[in-house]
Each structure stands twice: as C-alpha cells, then as structure tokens.
Simulated scan of single mutants.
Amino acid sequence: MSNARAPHPTRRGILAAGGALGLGAVLAACGDDDAKSGGSGDETAAAKSGPWSFKDDRGKTVALDKVPSSIVAFTGVGAALHDYGIRVKGVFGPTRTKDGKPDVQAGDMDVSKVTVLGNVWGSFNVEKYAALAPDLLISTTFDAAGTLWYVPEESKDKIAKLAPSVAISAYDRKLDVALGRMLELAESLGADVKASGVTEAKKRFDAAAARLRAAAKARPEIKVLAGSASDQLFYVSGTNLSLDLEYFKSLGVNFVEPPEKAKAQGGGWFESLSWENVDKYPADVIMMDDRSSTIQPADITEGTWKQLPAVKAGQVIARSPEPILSYDKCVPLLENLAKAIEDAKKVA
C-alpha cells in the first residue's frame, strides 16, 4: 500500500495523511466500494414542519418548503447529527472497515440502517443516491473554496442536480467554532439542543477544555507531535489549518510546528518525512492519526519509530484529525490529551 505523492500535489494528495485530512492514495488502495443519542429521539426532524433554511459556511443559503427528512451526509457528519437525534438515510465516506465493523468515523450510528453510497475516496453511487430521493446533502469542507468533502470531482455536477447541499467548514478554524456550527445545523433540522444529553455533553466538553488548559499551563515543557503513518512516509502535522490542533494550541498545548517551507508540499498541512528521518523533531508525546486509512502505532514495524523516546516511554495516544463534530465525541479528545500531558515524562 503506497502513499507516495506526485511532485506537484493534487487536491487529493494535499489532503493526504498528516494534515487534517486524509486519505489520498492510501485511501484509494484500501477497502472496497461499497446509539447513543444526545437529542430527543429517533425522529426529531419529523416533529418540525414548515419552511426551512440554513446559511452554510460557504455563505450559501438553502431554503426548502419543509424541514429535510431525507438527508444524505458524509459519514462523520451523519455521526454528529446522530448524537443530536437526527437520522440520515444515506452516508458516503469511511463507514465500514474491511471486516465489516463500523469505521471510527461512523461514531454511534448503526451502519446497518443507513445506505452506504461509497466507503472509500472517489466512490459515490449516484444511482443509489437518486433512489433515496434526497432533500439535502451535508458534508464538511477542508479548503477555502468550500469543496464538499468526499464528493467526487468527476460526479459532483450530477450529484448537485439531485438535491441542494450544505457545508460545515473544518478548515482553518478552531474546533469549538465548528462544533457550534454543527449544533446550529442540527437545531435547524429539529434537534432539541436543550435536551439533557446535549447540555451535559457541552458541560463535559467545557470541563475537559479547562482540564487541558490547566495541564498545558502546568507542563509547558511537554512537546507534543501530531503524526500520521503510511508505509513509505511519516507525516508531521502543522497546527495552522487543522481545527483540532488549532484549538488545542489555543489552550496552550506546546506543539511541534514544522516550518512553512517544509509544509509547502503538503499544501500547508504537514511535512513529509522518510522513516529514516522520523526522529527529526524531538517530542515527549506523539498523537497518531486514528483513521482506518493510516497505519496504526501497533502495526508500525520501522525500527526508527520504535527507538523514538516517546514511543519507548509509551507516550503515544490517538488523534482524530476528522473529529465527529458533536460535543459528546470531542470530550475524549480533550481528556486523552490532557491526561497524556499530565502523566508524561520529559523524554525529548
């Protein structure tokens, strides 16, 4: 499985691996083509009627005669809406792993109860999509142009003719802002944002953020590196575009930050290192990309990796570069990093 990139990165290559995003060539090589709720019930949206409109993060307003009831979404968006009691009919993006289990990005969704239109990069079954009679398509966007994440370039026009779309930006903004926007969208679709499951999750998120801020303040010497692994390359993420890392940095976390020149070939998201140079940046804690398209720490066989001080000390934790944008799902991201900093030995 190769993740080598062309000298002039395509959009797909720029979004590969260590930045926020993704999945690039690894994704195309992996996989095949094909509940807990914080809201107020399984059919929350059905309780709301009348005209509906929402202004998305591209500045586009979608206006419909009624609240959408046939929603298709990127998997992670479907998972976030699920936590607010909104159910989608179809999803696209990483939904099932090779063994058929729910992908990490599916959250608490029952993947057996949604139509999977495409499980890998570049896969989107337009015929199945049309058969769902969609009212609305929802995805995230990871660039300034508002490109819909996981909607294939070659079929985007056909897809656009079947239903309007809404985009929530995960580009160059902080996690808390994106969470607020997803909550606004869920509320517009009928979610009860005052339900105890929602309000309690928000309280836990705020408490976790305060804990992380306190940990970072108490241990400013602890250096954290955000990485991602492929068979050929190790990616060191910068913080300037990733919504999770930007937020953690704003709370005081001391991150490894590759120079802008080094990140240029990765579209500003990350620096690519050979495995021989994986020790370029000293780090006390390493956060590793948890997506199924990447090699997980337990499966990395490179000797240079195993000799890293943070690895030898057992100071490696998971990172979700495409977090599910519900407060419930983001609490552990903050808590795990806070604990790692609190407990870390200074090894770099």
Score class of each variant (00 low, 15 high):
A191K: 01
S112Y: 05
G50M: 03
D157C: 01
L162A: 08
D176H: 13
S274T: 12
T97D: 15
L241K: 15
E260V: 13
I341K: 01
A210S: 13
D56M: 04
K312D: 02
D56E: 01
T61Y: 04
V88T: 09
D299M: 04
R58N: 11
A298M: 06
R319P: 00
K98M: 00
D103S: 15
R12Y: 00
P309Y: 11
V347R: 09
I71H: 05
L64V: 06
A313L: 07
G38R: 06
A186S: 10
A207M: 12
S274W: 11
W121M: 15
D343G: 01
K203N: 13
P282K: 01
G266S: 12
W149C: 09
I71E: 02
V104L: 15
A186V: 06
F124I: 05
V114S: 12
P282I: 07
D172V: 04
V316K: 01
A167H: 02
T199E: 06
S293R: 06
F92H: 14
S292N: 08
K249C: 11
T239P: 03
V193P: 04
P309C: 05
T97Q: 14
R213K: 15
A25Y: 03
V67K: 02
I286E: 04
T44V: 05
V166S: 00
E271N: 13
D34V: 02
S112W: 00
Y281H: 04
E43N: 15
A20I: 10
S272I: 11
D108H: 12
R211E: 15
F92Q: 06
L136W: 14
E335A: 03
Y150S: 05
K280M: 09
Q296Y: 00
L225C: 11
A170L: 07
A28F: 10
E187R: 15
D99N: 11
G22K: 02
V77R: 06
L225N: 09
E246S: 14
I14C: 02
A310Y: 08
A310C: 13
S169Y: 07
L273V: 03
S2A: 06
G76V: 00
T147E: 11
G190S: 08
V193N: 08
A47Q: 11
P102G: 10
I86V: 15
K346E: 15
S292L: 14
F234E: 08
F270K: 02
A163Y: 04
Y150I: 01
T140E: 02
Y327N: 10
G100T: 11
S274C: 03
G50P: 04
V72L: 03
A208W: 06
A313W: 13
S49A: 10
